[in-house]
Amino acid sequence: MLPRPFRTPTNNSDPKKGERQMEPATATLLPSDRPAGGRVFILRHSLAVRILHWVNFITLTIMLMSGLQIFNAHPALYWGATSHFSRPILSMGAMEDDQGHTWGVTTVGSHTFVTTGVFGWSKGSEGTYTDRGFPTWATLPGPRWLAMGRAWHFFFAWILVINGALYVTLGILSGHIRRDLWLTRVDWRRLGHTFIEHVRLRFPKGDEARRYNGIQKLAYLFVIFIVAPLIVLTGLTMSPTMDAGWPWLLWLFDGRQSARTIHFICAMTFLGFFVVHIAMVILSGVWNNVRSMITGRYAIETPARASHE
């Protein structure tokens, strides 16, 4: 699924590269067009997309980790306007048993799990076990420090929103979203087939590798147009000032504590997206993918000659 194409045709062939040439991403490879090496380079990501991608990566990492620091100040989630302390949806904490042994415990609804070492009870920055929601390696800053977690979070929230707004604006104006992310009728029809191919870890080659497939497109559209707006709006709903100005936010998310819960779920969705994204980058060719997001150049193996490589 995730990492991949874009970008319109550019005919920047590089004479120094000999048989390697940059080809239009969307052009059909006719047999006679195939370069001798069986490998062509396309400009997959525009410069704007590359810059926005890496800014987004750094920003999301800081937002996630500082967000977990903030969560740790009260590691419990509720539904509705307020906190019903006796019945959280999710909570993390430490519990002592009869023998005086302490366990990290995570409760989801009515189910309780022992999560010692990770959630509820884990090694602090001084090497001793402490009562904390997420472990020190997952939070920013590492030690318990709500003021600083909030400082990071509310500074980078602006970067995230500005970066995201730039991406969507440029994406619409340049046609990138419509051309590269919007699903075609063929994408919809092939969705089942694409899914099976993904599960079997068979990734598109040749012409098919020039564009995103249906599952990739859906994943991107989902995080860009559903998860990202949701996480911003639920974040704003937690602001008592915004609740006075935009009371519809409370109506929309069924209260401030529900908004906090949805905000957390969105953050975990981003984390899930990130994990799958990295897995796909690795499985479908780390170097090719990473290079294409740094320099823009993405190599396409043409099936007929792939064996020569």
């Binding site: 750094i58 990492t61 800081i62 980790m65 920013l140 800053p141 590492g142 420090w145 600083m148 400082a151 990071w152 509310f154 500074f155 929230a157 602006w158």
Partner: peptide, 21 residues
Amino acid sequence: LLGGCDRLSNLPQTQSALLSA
């Protein structure tokens, strides 16, 4: 980035820069 952010958190300049948002 990860280790550095922790060290950065301890600098008064970082704190006031981040808080200025």
